[in-house]
C-alpha cells in the first residue's frame, strides 16, 4: 500500500518541531511536508509554484492545519481546497491554539473534518497526535481519487 504524505501547515518553528517530535514518538512514518504559510500550503495542495507538476488529485493522507498563518489564513486555505474538485475531499484536521467559538464554528462550517486544540502539556499533545495517527492514518480509508477530468 502506497503511503501518502501528511501536510503540516504551521508557521511557528517550535510548534513544527514539537509536532514532528510527537509524530516521531508515535512512530508515524508518513512523509511530512511542512508549509509555513497559507500560500505554501495551497502551492502543495494544488500543485503549483514550488510544487508545480505535483498531481493535486493525490490528496495527502492528512492535512494538519493551523489557523493563524501569514499571507493566507488557515480558514482561507480550507475554503479554497474545499472549493476545488481535486482536493475537496482531503481530510483536514484543524490544529490550533484557539478554542474560540468563532474559529471552531468557521472551521467546521468550511468543512474541517476535525478540530483539535493544541494542549500546552506535551504529553497530552503526544497522546492527541497518537489518536490522530491511529484514526486518520490507519483506520480511515481515503476517498477514491478524483477523476482527471474533474480538475481545472
Amino acid at each position: 500500500m502506497e503511503v501518502r504524505t501528511i501536510l503540516l501547515v504551521e508557521d511557528n518553528p517550535d510548534d513544527e518541531l514539537l509536532t514532528l517530535r510527537a509524530l516521531e514518538i508515535n512512530q508515524i512514518r508518513n512523509e511530512v511536508v511542512v508549509a509555513r504559510d497559507g500560500e505554501e500550503a495551497l502551492d502543495y495542495l494544488l500543485g503549483r509554484g514550488a510544487w508545480a507538476g505535483r498531481d493535486p488529485r493525490r490528496i495527502p493522507a492528512l492535512v494538519l492545519l493551523d489557523l493563524n498563518l501569514p499571507k493566507l489564513s488557515g480558514l482561507e486555505v480550507l475554503r479554497r481546497l474545499r472549493s476545488d474538485d481535486r482536493t475537496r475531499l482531503a481530510p483536514v484536521v484543524i490544529l490550533t491554539s484557539s478554542k474560540e467559538e468563532q474559529d471552531r464554528f468557521s472551521g467546521y462550517s468550511l468543512g474541517a473534518n476535525s478540530y483539535i486544540r493544541k494542549p500546552v502539556d506535551f504529553a497530552r499533545f503526544t497522546e492527541a497526535v497518537k489518536q490522530l495517527g491511529l484514526y486518520w492514518l490507519l483506520l480511515n480509508e481515503l476517498p477514491p481519487e478524483a477523476p482527471a477530468a474533474g480538475g481545472l
Binding site: 511557528n12 517550535d14 510548534d15 514539537l18 517530535r21 493563524n68 490550533t96 491554539s97 484557539s98 478554542k99 474560540e100 493544541k118 494542549p119 500546552v120 502539556d121 506535551f122 504529553a123 499533545f125
Partner: peptide, 22 residues
C-alpha cells in the same frame, strides 16, 4: 486581545513545556 492572548500566549508556553519534556 482575548483572541491573541488565547492564541499567542499559549504558543511560547507550548515551547517551554514541550522542550522541557523533550
Amino acid at each position: 486581545f482575548s483572541y491573541s492572548v488565547s492564541h499567542d500566549l499559549r504558543t511560547p508556553l507550548r515551547a517551554i513545556e514541550g522542550f522541557s519534556d523533550a
